[in-house]
Design a protein around this nucleic acid. Sequence first.
DNA 1: AAAACATATGTCAATAGTGACATAGCAAAA
DNA 2: TTTTGCTATGTCACTATTGACATATGTTTT
Lengths: 198, 198
Amino acid sequence: MTTLGYAILGLLAQEALSGYDLTQRMKGRVGNFWSARHSQIYPELARLEGDGYVTHSVVAQQDRPDKKVYEITAAGLETLKEWVTEPPSPRPTRDELVLKAYCVWLADPEKAARLFREEELRHEEQLARYEKTRDWMESEHGEEVNRPDSPWFAGYASLRRGIGYETEYAQWCRWVADSIEGKAEPSGRRKKGRDSKS
Amino acid sequence: MTTLGYAILGLLAQEALSGYDLTQRMKGRVGNFWSARHSQIYPELARLEGDGYVTHSVVAQQDRPDKKVYEITAAGLETLKEWVTEPPSPRPTRDELVLKAYCVWLADPEKAARLFREEELRHEEQLARYEKTRDWMESEHGEEVNRPDSPWFAGYASLRRGIGYETEYAQWCRWVADSIEGKAEPSGRRKKGRDSKS
DNA sequence: AAAACATATGTCAATAGTGACATAGCAAAA
DNA sequence: TTTTGCTATGTCACTATTGACATATGTTTT
């Protein structure tokens, strides 16, 4: 099984969905921690069906093309449940902006500061969207988000990861930009025993 | 140019290195934000050389096999400098643990709590390693880490990103584990106007 | 009427990345 | 002296992922 397979099973465990629906989910909130295009999803669904983890039925629609709605099978649910508590296989993080930070000593300071200000903004905007969803979840599903056996708790937990991630990322971007512009607190003590003497 | 190409150029901009050296860097601290195996690095070096971004010279060693030491060219440095302040091409984040969190409502609570405790520990250990490096950098290179045109500042900046990332990640893991065990603060207000009445 | 757009499902070639296989020199340990 | 281990460089098959191409239905906009 691929991780994408588990991602699909995880979505189907909550509700029956078409390939198109799954694609939308993978662009939306779920896509913030696992994403895939339809060109990867359709073949994966076929594979999952071949292995007996999902089944589909064709649903005719009035004002739209027909669709294949996929459901998770008992075997699929079983496999998914086992996977959930298994330690994740380590995946290397690859972050282009951190790589750029590592090379920033070569750059024009003004352009570099602008870059990190822009990225700070991007992450703050994402954070604002997450926080809106969180507030809605807390006010509309305040009971469920505290019950670990509820899908609402699970969705809330991954959302909180997104919030923490974006908060920290935006902060870091701000610190880098400030440092380049000489606005940040100087970091680290100077070498031994030379403290604020001025 | 691939991002791996820029990663290699970024390392060579600081010092001349062999393919083997580069592989070690990509496993070490640099590997925490951009990693690659030697099977990807050697062909990429050949490509970079073919495009005129690096050159190599064979260096004979007394007690080891010969090595090819790569240096960045003027053209390579030029290209790298331009790239640094360019906005990064968006890469989807894929985090298996967050995906597992999204499915955690299906899991046995004890096993799930154990999983997140283990991950919390992993991230705290990584954090401790980063902090040790940071402290060393601050005490041994306190001047340079504050100068944006110094490679020390650049390395320090990416290290700080690692520290923030691991700090936040460990916290989140702890919160998830606590929540599953019923130890966390209940999140969110209950629906309208029902406050701590007990 | 034509164009643009959303729904819906698929294939395919190319790229990025991994893991295994392969080879070789030299050193230290068993 | 054989094995183990680190240095050093390379190739190759396979998997994961992307972006482009392809097709069809039905609705809304121009």
